[in-house]
Design a binder for these strands. Structure first.
Length: 615
DNA sequence: TTAGGGTTAG
């Protein structure tokens, strides 16, 4: 309707109403305003429902000022007027404005309560929402699925399991136990509180399930690091005859990224391109992340370039994709582009930039970004930013500065912050400070296996076998188990998994022979076996035992064409000796080797690695 | 003849 200035003279209310409805649907404020004038002239403004529609239209165009003006000038209002005002302010993210209307409305009904409660949940003020819910019940209103789903979401956001369970008990009193919306919210609440058993219980007992409920349970598996189960459930969903939607794909991709499964990622990508969800910004952003986590930064960039609609999250994903893969300069230059693009960087974007600076050893730039984050962009640094900053200083060898930062930061340092310092102590061989950092981690997380292992490595790398052995014994006493290290490699669309001392791979003999020969060859160009711990590399009765990443790389070398990049994923950190070995292998073979371990990416080319972690 | 709802990406 936009652009058509000729309007027939409306002669009755329903005609005005129909026209206004059309304006609302197309967000056509211009025509709406003309109608407004006409309505005024014809004296129809006394018809409350027409003014209500106009108020809605103003809110839709984010003009709460004119909406308010109209509201103030109304000689008479009805319940719709008040509730439209509350909802309008909630939509404009003005919860205070919404609350003022709500408080001023004496005849609040069920919808007024639901709207304001929802508003607080959306603003992240779940406890206020729960308080209002309580008041609503005290006033004798029986909550419907609208209010109950909102407060369940509040519990999910706050991880308030106890309150969530209380609400679960209450839904029987309200007769909502069979309601699909309430059950879906319950599933989501349990999943976000890491109570998957309860979530499944609710899911299995639902009288009816739709795509939203399935998506909720898939999300639960995905966000609780149960990627395999997520896909198992997805297959089950298909067998039930449900059609996946864009949310399903976003969730599946997120699982795929966590599993670093490039084969699966590509399969999903192909499927998505052919589906109608190929230009959904959530799906595309998840796809960028899949490729980034699989070390395929070029594919990530292709997806990013092909996007028709972008937002801060998609830009941040690409910045992080570069940063994680060791392309610090590219990450920073994309970030600078973002600043000129009209999108606003947020807290996570800055984590990506700081990560990039840390990777490239750009300490001054990192400090500058940290500064402008607060001063220019008004973002208060949280623990993740301080962790990045400690990592930035620590990796660059400024251990003293890192400690000073920890002692002066306004947030209470957590295990991740001390862990970053501990990692830096390993790289720069500072056993005293390492011991201090580790003790802080142990105070906060006594069962933290990776901190124990890091300290153990620090001891052994300094030749302090005694303390290393003592720490091992302590771990055994405390029942702290290091996960078995395994590595994956994909060859011809099949994922091969290797574990040290595991002979089950059909090519294991060829792999061992190739590896032995390879090590002999790299010894000629300067490689020296340097055990990062006496437990690292065993030679028993003439049979060698190699770390899983070495097995995976040897398999990659003998089973793929010489020009092909070898990509390995590892569930733990790559040890110093393996890191060194891979450097030499990349030099000897001329192969590009990408290893993604649990902490970061290592990109080996011609005897060098991008990570800068090891000596 | 107008108002309120559950699941998604970094």
């Amino acid at each position: 309707m936009g652009g058509h200035f000729f309007l027939p003279k409306p002669s009755n209310l329903s005609f005005y109403n129909a026209l206004l409805q059309e304006c609302l649907e197309s967000s056509d404020l211009q025509t709406g305003k003309m109608l407004h004038t006409n309505i005024l002239k014809s004296g129809f403004l006394s018809q409350i429902f027409l003014t209500n529609r106009l108020i809605q239209l103003y809110f839709k165009r984010e003009d709460s000022h004119d909406a308010r003006k109209l509201f103030d000038e109304m000689p008479q209002r009805d319940s719709f007027t008040w509730n439209i005002m509350i909802a309008g302010y909630v939509r404009s993210k003005d919860i205070i404005g919404a609350r003022k209307i709500f408080d001023g409305y004496v005849w609040r009904n069920d919808i007024s309560w639901n709207t304001i409660i929802r508003g607080y949940v959306q603003e992240g003020k779940g406890s206020i929402a729960l308080n209002l819910f309580n008041q609503m019940i005290i006033q004798g209103l029986k909550p419907t699925h609208f209010a109950v789903s909102s407060v369940l979401r509040a519990c999910a956001g706050l991880s308030w399991l106890k309150t969530g369970k209380l609400l679960h008990g209450l839904i029987y009193r309200f007769g909502l136990e069979g309601n699909v919306v309430v059950c879906t919210s319950l599933i989501d609440m349990y999943c976000k509180c890491r109570e998957l058993t309860n979530a499944c219980h609710v899911f299995n007992r639902m009288p009816e399930r739709n795509i939203v409920s399935w998506n909720a349970i898939l999300t639960g598996y995905s966000q609780n690091s149960l990627g395999e189960d997520c896909f198992r459930m997805f297959i089950e969903m298909l067998e039930f005859g449900l059609k996946p939607d864009h949310i399903t794909f976003a969730v599946l991709l997120s699982s795929t990224a966590a599993l670093a499964n490039l084969v699966q990622g590509k399969q999903l990508h192909g499927f998505i391109v052919k589906s109608q969800f190929g230009s959904d910004v959530y799906v595309e952003t998840a796809l960028i992340d899949v490729y980034a986590k699989c070390g395929s930064v070029d594919n990530a960039r292709q997806v990013f370039n092909s996007m028709t609609k972008q937002n801060t999250v998609s830009w941040s994903s690409m910045v992080i994709a570069y940063a994680q893969n060791g392309y610090g300069k590219e990450a920073i230059s994309l970030f600078e582009e973002l600043l000129n693009s009209g999108f606003k960087p947020d807290a996570i974007t800055f984590v990506g930039v700081l990560m990039a600076c840390s990777h490239s050893g750009l300490v001054d730039e990192g400090c500058r970004y940290f500064d402008i984050m607060q001063r220019v962009h008004g973002i208060e640094p949280d623990k993740t930013h301080y962790t990045s900053l400690v990592d930035l200083f620590g990796r660059a060898g400024y251990l003293k500065e890192a400690v000073e930062l920890i002692n002066s930061m306004p947030v209470k340092p957590d295990a991740a912050i001390w862990g970053a310092l501990l990692g830096a102590c390993r790289v720069h061989r500072d056993p005293e400070l390492g011991q201090l950092a580790a003790s802080k981690v142990f105070e906060l997380e006594p069962q933290n296996a990776s901190a124990h292992m890091l300290l153990c490595h620090i001891y052994s790398e300094c030749g302090n076998w005694d303390d290393a052995a003592k720490l091992r014994a302590k771990m055994k006493n405390l029942g702290i188990k290091k996960d078995p290290g395994y590595s994956w490699i994909e060859v011809d669309n099949v994922v091969h998994r290797f574990v040290a001392d595991d002979d089950s791979h059909p090519w294991i003999d060829e792999i061992n022979i190739a590896l032995k020969k390879l090590i002999e060859q790299i010894e000629h160009i300067g490689y020296v076996f340097y055990p990062s711990s006496p437990f690292n590399h065993k030679i028993e009765e003439g049979r060698e035992s190699y770390h899983s990443e070495k097995l995976a790389i040897a398999f990659g070398l003998i089973s793929t064409p010489t020009e092909k990049t070898i990509r390995i994923m590892k569930n733990l950190r790559v040890c110093g000796d393996c890191h060194n070995t891979i450097k030499f292998i990349s030099q000897l073979s001329g192969r590009e080797i990408i290893v993604r371990d649990v902490c970061r990416f290592h990109h080996f080319r011609s005897g060098k690695c991008s990570c800068g972690d090891y000596w």
